[in-house]
């Protein structure tokens, strides 16, 4: 399973490179053009990430995270500190990334909580952001069952993440 996980990226790189070579493309040229786009993406998210990372940091370090985690009963089946992550991810990927880094700092990325957060952010998308871009751009106001289904799908992802993470970490 772990070897397979590590193999996904190199295999894709291998396929793409061989395919590009066979098509006789100017590979390094295409690569650097794309890498430039990648650099721009990272630079573009940095200002927002700074803002959101500071907020996540003060939320955790001030003790506010501990206090709000106590709202949940002791036998709550999901790590209380991960609840804000589910909500943040629905609004913004950068916010989720900022808060997840604090989760990693507190629990460690390989812990049950860290693994759940990792899988969860890998299998969900920003509900409100996506809806506002696609529907908002075309003036569609009646979105019918989109939100309901998206929320159920996200919830199934949250549950799947917790189950898979507990299976992996043995927690």
């Amino acid at each position: 399973m772990n070897t397979l996980s590590a193999a996904v990226m190199p295999i894709i790189v291998l396929i793409v490179t061989i395919f590009g070579l066979r098509k006789k493309r100017n590979l390094l040229n295409d690569f650097s053009e794309g890498a430039m786009k990648g650099l721009k993406i990272v630079v573009k998210i940095l200002p927002v990430l700074i803002a959101l990372m500071c907020a996540s940091k003060i939320f955790c370090e001030s003790g506010l995270a501990d206090v709000s985690a106590q709202v949940f009963p002791a036998n709550f089946p999901f790590p209380p500190k991960l609840v804000p992550l589910v909500f943040l991810k629905a609004f913004s990927s950068s916010a989720a990334l900022g808060y997840a880094s604090q989760i990693f700092k507190i629990f460690g990325p390989d812990s049950y909580e860290g693994m759940t957060a990792s899988i969860m952010l890998g299998c969900t998308e920003t509900i409100f952001y996506t809806m506002s871009i696609y529907f908002g751009s075309f003036g569609i106001k009646k979105t019918r069952y989109t939100f309901l289904c998206a929320a159920i799908s996200t919830l199934s992802g949250v549950i799947a993440s917790a189950v898979i993470a507990s299976y992996i970490t043995g927690a």
Binding site: N2, L4, S5, V8, S118, G122, C123, I168
Partner: peptide, 9 residues
């Protein structure tokens, strides 16, 4: 193992 998240994800 940072890549361990891939298959579960």
């Amino acid at each position: 193992a940072p890549f361990d998240v891939v298959m579960p994800s």
